[in-house]
Design a protein around this nucleic acid. Sequence first.
DNA 1: TCTTGTCATTTGCATATGCAATTAGATAGC
DNA 2: GCTATCTAATTGCATATGCAAATGACAAGA
Lengths: 249, 249
Amino acid sequence: MAETQSDTLKLDGAGPVYDQIRRAIRDLVVGGAWPPGTPVPPEHALMEQLGTSRMTVHRALVQLAREGLITRRRRSGTVVASPPASHAMFDILSIPEEIERLGQDYAYEILAREVGKVSPEVAERFGLKRSDRIVHLLVLHRGDGRPHVLEERIIHLAAVAAAAGEFFAEVPPGDWLLQNSLWSQAEHAISAVGASVQEAGLLEIAETEPCLLVERRTWNQDRPVTAVRLLYPGPRHRFVGRFGPYGPA
Amino acid sequence: MAETQSDTLKLDGAGPVYDQIRRAIRDLVVGGAWPPGTPVPPEHALMEQLGTSRMTVHRALVQLAREGLITRRRRSGTVVASPPASHAMFDILSIPEEIERLGQDYAYEILAREVGKVSPEVAERFGLKRSDRIVHLLVLHRGDGRPHVLEERIIHLAAVAAAAGEFFAEVPPGDWLLQNSLWSQAEHAISAVGASVQEAGLLEIAETEPCLLVERRTWNQDRPVTAVRLLYPGPRHRFVGRFGPYGPA
DNA sequence: TCTTGTCATTTGCATATGCAATTAGATAGC
DNA sequence: GCTATCTAATTGCATATGCAAATGACAAGA
């Protein structure tokens, strides 16, 4: 998890000063050099350290706060914020949370766990190289005892070495990764598919039942971290979002 | 389309001055009093009119610009921006645009058009009152001749009276509405469903094929404007989005 | 021990000022 | 008419200054 990045504030001289400051701090935060909870120096200190006026520093910090990277409180000062676990409609969200928000009892079981090389089918399904070293998991999440979603996940050991020794007995892999890995980019795709025979059996649905498939891949600085296929049974699942003409409401 | 709203800037005295200014202008923009293209008074003028300093006005305008509501250029001044037609992942997007972006030839046909009261089935499917006066449409959109998406739409005449006399011969209803109506909120839901016999026939797919259903409802100030069901055939359609831990990338 | 009050630190906000950068429109020159 | 140049309007940015508001820390008192 160690990044090859400086942990000192350095202005690059490109563009407005307030934006240089903003980017400098942002880079330390998203690069992991300043993990959540790290105190950001007070405006006075930054002002002296950087040789600018307080208002200029202020402007940078206000903007970072609006972007959610830092939290500011009078007297207590400024600290690096924890990334919000769930954003808008389709962000990284915790499945336990998702189920508990429906008022259902959450449970999960690890149906399969393999550590090591990728099998040909997995390589094809997730677009991996055979030489990648991964953990491959199959997890069934239940709400009130009924299958809620089937999760098939791979974790890249190159990015998250600790995953090799983890059995996910207490915390499901999605939530575990939120605690134990860094990510800087994600992509997901939503589509409708039919379940395979095996999948239909696990989800306890008929084979012809349409399913909603959410595929998500996550990177940290261009290095793949994890990829997951979430298969939601039937038309009883809906993803809902609200927004206005100029952005999310 | 006339709104019962003032078109004069008025500060409400709540919170920071720069934010009062921001909200005042925002309300005129989203309320339709200042349609896209309207010039916003220069900072000097606002400063005098509102009795504040230029920097305070500036701060409000800079933020509005960052939110995308206004466009600013030196010397030319500030104008109200056009709402972006497509946003992030699931916003209002033009189907012709969507298809042309895939490099396919776009075509559409109106399969049905009814003006007047709602039938019981439609009332149930869209959650309407029988007394609502609407236009009901069924439209098939094609890319390179193949069915791309089946659109079933209702338009509330109370919100968009002009829709009653429109035959959508030149422009499909989605795009027509973008030009001829105002909306302030939208909600959509995505789910996986099986196609009905009729729908499967129109989309030229097998009956068992899973489909992606996007349902979108749109309001203007709590008054419903339109509702649409977009049925995408089979697993060949994917909605893709990218984002980072602190928001869309 | 608990409460209360005071103080100092830190952020939040507004203002005044000055200059830089951009560029629409006017003007001058060809 | 066309082009180059100039001018002025407008936004962009940085600074200095002052005060307000929140609140952690600590001291004083009950």
